[in-house]
Design a protein around this nucleic acid. Sequence first.
DNA 1: CGCCGCTATTCAGTGATACTATGTACCAGT
DNA 2: ACTGGTACATAGTATCACTGAATAGCGGCG
Lengths: 109, 109
Amino acid sequence: MAKQMTEMLRGTLEGIVLAILSVGPAYGYVITARLREQGLSDIAEGTVYAVLVRFEQKGLVDVEKIPSEKGPPRKVYSLNAQGREYLEEFWRTWSFLAERLEQLHEGGK
Amino acid sequence: MAKQMTEMLRGTLEGIVLAILSVGPAYGYVITARLREQGLSDIAEGTVYAVLVRFEQKGLVDVEKIPSEKGPPRKVYSLNAQGREYLEEFWRTWSFLAERLEQLHEGGK
DNA sequence: CGCCGCTATTCAGTGATACTATGTACCAGT
DNA sequence: ACTGGTACATAGTATCACTGAATAGCGGCG
């Protein structure tokens, strides 16, 4: 992966995963798959699981263990009220930053 | 500063400073001042200098020491060819990520 | 003169987080 | 039994922004 992308994902990956969860409950494996579909193909599985563990520790998600037809049981995460709030905060922060960067990008042309 | 902002600046702060330098040569102190004008008021001075040192090590900038009328001499940084290339790469990475996030943001509403 | 305030840079130590590189485990089809 | 897809977990590493200082030159004020 581009080195720049790696660093840029810090802080945004959390928001991305949170946004995916805001659509509906999901578990690590499908989240990873969805990221790959989105073109974020180089995000390691382990990274996603680490993010989910952090969400759980911060109390942003509810967790439910559900048996899978094929493979080990899934840990299904769903966003709770606190998580939704955190996501909104994320969007505010991101929007602010994106605006500044947009200005700089326009100005630099 | 918001905790989220701190992490989100990773990888983007580099681009922001690079973008400021692309307008014209500048030194740490004024770059910090310009960031504050932009509303990025909580970026520590020390952080900006660290970024500049990294740029120098990566060979993205040319450095010139110029005496100041008031205070110690300034280290004036100007973007070189490699730096300009790096900045373009940054914009590509940023645009890609911003698009994905925009999609997720729209989709989540 | 001595102190303050502005200009200007530097650095040691800390914390958060994404990566690499594995390892574990379950099931189906051949 | 073996392969391949599903699903989760983790130890160790590197990067980078922050905090909180220290250092230094200069002008003005009492």
